[in-house]
């Protein structure tokens, strides 16, 4: 039996709020993620774009490929621009809308962090989506704090690879006590659809971290985008889970765990991380030892996650 998509067929075939003609590279996972996100969020969505690939390929002036309003903004400001837009919509009395930031990893992990942290702390009623292709791809593959250890970029000097770990964005966001945090991947469109739908119904700050394969930057065949992203999850390199706030009951003195972790996709078999790293040119310089030590780290993090999910 094939796994069934739970995205309603009607939504699947009809509600395309993204139109073709976009100039994204062949096989880019970002427009695919956007397509699914917008199917879940619907037309009453405002998309805020900081500088990122998407801001460029969505359409240069005077064209737009999205059938929802878009606000472009400076690189580092997306979270707060969205906060302003959300405030304005509430002042206008517009109900049932969602303001979604669609930022790359640079605009989230690096330059966007301050405004993001501010918006998160204020628990602004926005949905911040980071489509993480793990480097500055738009400017030509420079390292970001989202670049995983072991990856080659143009700013990890010749013959070298990034030696530092990827920033743990999920933990950072959770440390802000936001309303909803999830990871998702277009390789699991159903899960992604559900998460966007869920996020839409939650008020306050929502953060969704999307893994987003970039064929030129990852040095992969465009046809393998989904396959490799699926591998990221099947190897636990990119676990798919969500964290909701537990409702705090007023009448108990008991201090309960604040977070409710749910792992949404369990790997079906034990795939070693090497098969993920070896599938991509950017990890070509990783030694077997590095892969081994990464395996240990990945295992440990997964174990922690499993424990948190209970």
């Amino acid at each position: 039996m094939q796994k069934k998509f739970e995205i309603p067929r009607q939504v699947l075939v009809e509600q395309d709020l993204m139109q073709p003609g976009i100039t994204s590279c062949q096989g880019c996972a970002a427009p695919l993620s956007m397509k699914i996100a917008l199917k879940a969020l619907g037309e009453r969505t405002v998309v805020v774009f900081p500088a990122c690939c998407f801001a460029v390929f969505v359409g240069g002036y005077p064209y737009s490929s999205l059938k929802v309003p878009i606000i472009h903004c400076p690189f580092e400001t997306s979270a707060v621009v969205a906060s302003g837009a959300a405030a304005a919509l509430s002042v206008r009395g517009e109900k049932d809308t969602v303001v979604m930031v669609w930022a790359g990893d640079g605009g989230t992990f690096d330059i966007g962090m301050q405004a993001l942290s501010g918006a998160a702390e204020r628990n602004e009623n926005i949905l911040f989506v980071c489509y993480d292709n793990e480097a500055y791809m738009n400017t030509g593959i420079q390292r970001s704090s989202a670049t995983p250890m072991g990856a080659w970029t143009t700013t990890t000097p010749e013959g070298c690879i990034k030696e530092e770990s990827k920033k743990d964005i999920e933990q950072i966001m959770l440390a802000h006590h936001i309303s909803y945090m999830a990871t998702a991947s277009a390789a699991y469109p159903d899960d992604m659809f559900k998460k966007f739908q869920k996020a839409r119904g939650i008020s306050g700050m929502k953060f969704i971290h999307l893994l987003s394969a970039c064929p030129p930057g990852w040095r992969i065949d465009p046809a393998h985008t989904i396959k490799i992203m699926r591998l990221a999850t099947q190897t636990n390199v990119f676990p798919i889970y969500e964290v909701c706030k537990r409702p705090v009951s007023a009448d108990t003195e008991q201090i309960t765990e604040e977070w409710q972790y749910t792992i949404n996709v369990f790997p079906e078999k034990n795939v070693p991380v090497g098969s993920y790293f070896k599938s991509q040119g950017r990890f070509g310089l990783m030694t077997d030892e590095m892969i081994q030590s990464t395996q240990k780290r990945v295992d440990r993090k997964w174990q922690e996650l499993v424990e948190k999910a209970g």
């Binding site: 139109q19 003609g21 976009i22 005077p62 064209y63 737009s64």
Partner: peptide, 15 residues
């Protein structure tokens, strides 16, 4: 256009 709003879609761009 005022406020630099879009006027159309990218469908002209036959990728």
């Amino acid at each position: 256009t005022p406020m630099h709003v879009s006027l159309g879609n990218m469908l002209y761009n036959k990728t």
